[in-house]
Write a protein that binds this DNA or RNA. Structure first.
Lengths: 231, 231
DNA sequence: ACAATTTCGAGAGCACTGCTCTTGACTTCG
DNA sequence: CGAAGTCAAGAGCAGTGCTCTCGAAATTGT
């Protein structure tokens, strides 16, 4: 009935946490492919079959790590946005964009887990899609604030047809004052962020834009220009 | 000395091709993770160890598939660009961008192989970086033609410092008339393309911008606007 | 307080993986 | 013809995810 349940339950929560911790360590060391249940259990001093009491399959363990990663990046972005709240739209935009990249550079394998190619044969279950929206929602929130402040640019051709409906659907759910054209811009920028970070992390910029710090910062500012955020 | 060498050499070339074909089939069916040398050899009616006469390791086979994929997407883009050559800059831009997406949708696993997260523990060897530049080079070529025709927009803040040098380096090597600001735009667009395609392929657009045809087409046109290509 | 139930770790085992090494047969070339 | 080079096959190693069973322990119901 109380917070500290039975000894068994506390032990179970503790071990579940330790398993995820060790799994994350292995993830960082050798990637999703190298995540081995046997190695995790070995490191924890237990036998491999015992792990299945905590995660019914390797995929379930992966799912747990994915959800944690989405939450981590979401929380980081929300914190960055909060801390830049008083400094204007452009500062918030910068902070949230750089929060994503910083987290990605710090945790490349976890980033790859959520924004890279999916582990083949693994289908992301429903539980992952709610945490996945947390980061983009911060971006959209800035645009929403910009819209109510009259600082959101709207000089692009209005999307038509099905696209207009899709964009309106997003607005209705998350940012009622952001018009479809701006929402399309936002989605494009969001794509571009992951594209740039992916290129940087996965080595596509080798010999050209690597190190990519300056390119990223420059591009983030151009996005802010594009959205009409005041300098 | 002549084109048809010894029977042995012809047999070897033939088998090498067949191995890659079967490997690509398995890749399409179950992804890079599911690519099993044993399964390939089984399908080809040979024993697994025999495969090592042709590819010294699984990674070498992957590398061969990666190079082939880069070449395939590069060739597709060059063809699209050629066929749209008479229709103006915007038509060429559209054609080349859609060529990438079409190829990606047709070969999602091969696309993931080259633009997704790298297979952990696998380091892309030098041989892959030349074919990798083939596609972006087509994009840059359009910008170069636009620049000489005086149709390349240049109304963004000029990049400074290290970034300016990096961009200039790309221009020097591939497109002497494209100024740094435009080259930065181009790199951003190139990032955005892979970002959008990645989102579409890897399911990040589920429930929002999926199907993504219209969003992609709309965004590609906004990029052309941004580059100043005449309608 | 004692019995019934649930939870847990351990171990054996299955079918699979990439990869190495050795063996014997075949082809090519001097 | 015979030496040199090439090839497929087979056995074997160390590793994987996962299942099943078994006995011990903790929890729960009476």
């Amino acid at each position: 009935m109380n917070a500290s349940r039975t000894a068994r339950e506390r032990a179970r929560a503790e071990l579940t946490r330790e398993i995820k911790e060790e799994a994350r360590r292995q993830l960082a060391a050798s990637g999703a492919q190298g995540l081995s249940l046997r190695a995790v259990s070995r490191e924890l001093g237990m036998v491999s079959s015992a792990l299945y009491r905590y995660f019914p399959s390797r995929d379930e363990l992966l799912t747990a790590l994915i959800v944690d990663a989405y939450d981590a990046v979401g929380e980081r972005a929300e914190k960055a946005d909060r801390e830049a709240a008083g400094d204007g739209l452009r500062a918030r935009w910068r902070a949230v964009c750089h929060a994503l990249r910083d987290w990605a550079v710090e945790h490349p394998h976890e980033y790859a887990l959520i924004y890279g190619s999916p582990v083949p044969g693994y289908a992301a279950p429903e539980d992952t899609i709610a945490p996945a929206t947390r980061y983009p929602f911060v971006l959209i929130g800035i645009a929403q604030d910009a819209a109510t402040a009259g600082h959101l640019a709207a000089d692009a051709p209005a999307p038509a047809g099905r696209l207009a409906g899709q964009l309106q659907g997003i607005s209705d759910a998350m940012a009622p004052d952001v018009p479809p054209a701006a929402m399309a811009r936002l989605a494009a920028h969001w794509s571009q962020l992951t594209g740039m970070i992916g290129f940087e992390l996965f080595g596509q910029f080798a010999n050209t834009l690597d190190p990519a710090d300056d390119f990223f910062a420059y591009s983030v500012d151009r996005m802010a220009d594009d959205l009409g955020f005041p300098a």
